[in-house]
Amino acid sequence: MPGGDWTDADLKVNWPLDIGGTKMYLLSNGFAPVVTVRDADGEVAFSGPVAFIPQDNNLRSLGVIKVPDGLAEQVGMLGFFYPDPVEQSDGIFQSQSPYIGPSSLLTLTVYTGDLGLDEGVSVNAYSLDTDGLTQVAGPKADAAALELKQGQTAELPDGLGTIEFTALKRFVGVEFHHDPTEGWVLVFSLLILGGLLVSLFVPRRRMWIKAVADGDAVHLEYAGLARGEDPGLADAVADIARRHAARLERRMNP
Rank of each mutant, 00 (worst) to 15 (best):
197 L>H: 07
200 L>G: 03
175 E>N: 14
178 H>K: 13
183 G>Y: 04
204 R>G: 12
165 F>K: 07
211 A>D: 03
165 F>G: 02
202 V>S: 10
182 E>N: 11
192 I>L: 13
202 V>F: 11
184 W>R: 15
203 P>E: 09
189 S>F: 03
180 P>I: 00
178 H>Y: 10
181 T>L: 03
161 G>Q: 00
205 R>P: 05
203 P>I: 09
193 L>S: 06
203 P>Q: 14
186 L>R: 13
197 L>Q: 12
182 E>R: 11
173 G>R: 15
209 I>V: 14
161 G>D: 02
171 F>K: 00
199 S>C: 11
180 P>S: 08
180 P>F: 00
194 G>T: 05
178 H>M: 02
193 L>Q: 09
189 S>L: 04
171 F>G: 02
191 L>F: 11
197 L>W: 08
165 F>L: 07
167 A>K: 15
165 F>D: 03
162 T>W: 04
166 T>C: 06
204 R>F: 03
185 V>A: 12
161 G>P: 01
195 G>I: 00
182 E>S: 13
164 E>T: 15
192 I>Y: 09
201 F>T: 13
184 W>Y: 08
187 V>I: 10
206 R>M: 08
190 L>V: 12
183 G>N: 14
171 F>E: 00
177 H>P: 02
177 H>C: 12
179 D>F: 02
175 E>Q: 13
207 M>C: 01
212 V>M: 07
175 E>P: 04
208 W>F: 06
178 H>E: 06
209 I>E: 10
189 S>E: 10
199 S>K: 06
208 W>S: 13
207 M>Q: 04
186 L>C: 03
184 W>V: 05
173 G>Q: 08
209 I>H: 11
208 W>N: 07
172 V>T: 08
180 P>Y: 00
210 K>P: 00
197 L>F: 08
186 L>F: 06
169 K>T: 12
197 L>Y: 09
167 A>Q: 15
185 V>S: 11
188 F>P: 00
187 V>Y: 09
166 T>V: 08
209 I>R: 15
187 V>T: 13
176 F>L: 14
198 V>R: 09
205 R>C: 03
167 A>E: 08
195 G>W: 00
172 V>F: 11
212 V>N: 10
166 T>D: 06
189 S>M: 09
180 P>G: 04
170 R>L: 06
212 V>W: 01
186 L>E: 07
170 R>Y: 05
201 F>S: 11
188 F>Y: 12
173 G>D: 09
166 T>Q: 15
192 I>H: 05
171 F>N: 02
212 V>G: 01
167 A>N: 15
199 S>F: 06
172 V>Q: 14
207 M>F: 15
201 F>G: 03
198 V>F: 03
166 T>M: 11
209 I>N: 11
166 T>L: 07
191 L>W: 14
179 D>T: 02
185 V>K: 15
170 R>E: 03
194 G>F: 10
165 F>S: 00
183 G>I: 11
174 V>P: 02
166 T>I: 00
208 W>L: 02
205 R>S: 05
210 K>N: 06
202 V>K: 14
201 F>W: 07
187 V>R: 15
164 E>A: 12
195 G>C: 01
199 S>N: 11
185 V>C: 02
199 S>W: 05
163 I>R: 13
203 P>K: 14
176 F>M: 08
204 R>E: 03
206 R>L: 13
196 L>Q: 13
198 V>C: 08
189 S>Q: 14
199 S>A: 15
209 I>Q: 13
